[in-house]
Design a protein around this nucleic acid. Structure first.
Lengths: 209, 209
DNA sequence: CGTTTGCTTGAATTCTGTCAAAGCAGGTGG
DNA sequence: CCACCTGCTTTGACAGAATTCAAGCAAACG
């Protein structure tokens, strides 16, 4: 079965990420279910309670919401090796405020809420993994909020490109803009200014034929 | 001992908040230590690892940092019945990026890191309390970030006043401004506009002599 | 090959920040 | 009891920055 080849790779990546020894990774296959998404397909809808956590084995996910005026605001990106969910909805049971969509064809491992709750309330090492993940998300958002408050938009964009070179090159600019809280036009102008400055500082090595 | 009267009140408030039965609250006195702060006194310094969690029994705490230009940015307020810490520093062990100061004379119950770690790694109900607190902080910050991205500054300020009437009246405006990511002058202008609009909509009941 | 999608660019507009100054307490000390 | 100080808020004028609106282009896609 060639199609299962990828699935096992996905479990291997998850086991690595969770730092689980090879022999213990079999347990993962009992609670995580492989799932594939095609580009632009939605994993989670606004208004419905989010009942899953997704581990990205391949591709990229994005969570976002739209405001009164229909403007999109990106909350999070998830690259291979990272988890994605609407955590607020998952833990509260309330209708979600986020869409989660595939930016490209994706391979996921999905942990459903029932299994999540079992693990969350169990007093096993999974409990600690969950705590670690939540701490990680909290830290990320905290730093992002600090950046948003203290940096100029230009510094903020530059920092994003620096810290997420993969996303910066593979994700549409307007989504990065919506993540940074600015307009696509502003991103474009920042890029132009940066290019000009780079051009002055270091010449591109353009061969004279 | 009249001075202990307040301390026992503090423990009672904490027990209520944690939903711990009265007979179980005695355990709290073993791990939480009463501490008093005077107005403007610092509980945590930037640059030093944060080694405690504070429960506010009385008064108000604020966490904030300053950027390159010396501008203050408020991360969080803590009113009576709430916890405050530099969670990122506490869990990472890295030097903190936040000041925590008393906005007025405060009575706190302090949980030191050693006790925190013990509870965090123990598989007791404290573990669940910690998870619940972290989930709460995550949810708060998530909603705040969404507001910051999707609301106009005016809507954002109005929402803050609506949701935190106590803080809005008791805390200096420039700190609220630094929490919302705007200048004190902008807050002042928003307030003036709002007052004008209120004046048009509903007359103040000013007695004609 | 036409349509869609995303990126760039310009001009006008709106906001917000900045700077400087004045008003308004509340608290302190003479 | 009053004068003064100090911290905080308000105000106005101005400059700067980002959004908005509109148009043009390039690349990707079916």
């Amino acid at each position: 079965m060639p199609s299962n080849q990828h699935a096992s790779d996905a479990f291997q990546l998850l086991a690595d990420y969770l730092q689980i020894p090879a022999d213990g990774s079999a347990a993962l296959t009992k609670v995580f279910q492989p799932k594939k998404l095609t580009r632009k397909q939605l994993l989670v809808q606004i208004g419905e309670p989010c009942r899953l956590i997704a581990f990205v084995a391949n591709g990229t996910l994005r969570s976002y919401f739209t405001d009164d005026r229909g403007i999109e605001h990106t909350m999070q990106f998830a690259s291979p090796g990272q988890f994605m969910t609407d955590f607020v909805s998952l833990t509260s049971g309330q209708p979600g405020q986020l869409f989660i969509e595939a930016l490209e064809d994706c391979e996921l491992l999905v942990l459903h809420q029932s299994a999540f709750d079992t693990l969350a309330h169990s007093r096993t090492s999974y409990h600690n993994l969950l705590m670690a993940q939540l701490t990680h998300w909290y830290t990320e958002m905290s730093l992002r909020l600090m950046d948003m408050m203290s940096l100029t938009v230009e510094q903020h964009y530059m920092k994003f490109v620096d810290q997420h070179p993969e996303l910066a090159t593979h994700v549409p600019q307007h989504m990065i803009a919506s993540y940074l809280g600015i307009t696509p036009e502003s991103v474009s102008r920042i890029r132009r200014r940066a290019a000009h400055h780079d051009g002055h500082h270091k010449q591109q090595n353009h061969k004279p034929d």
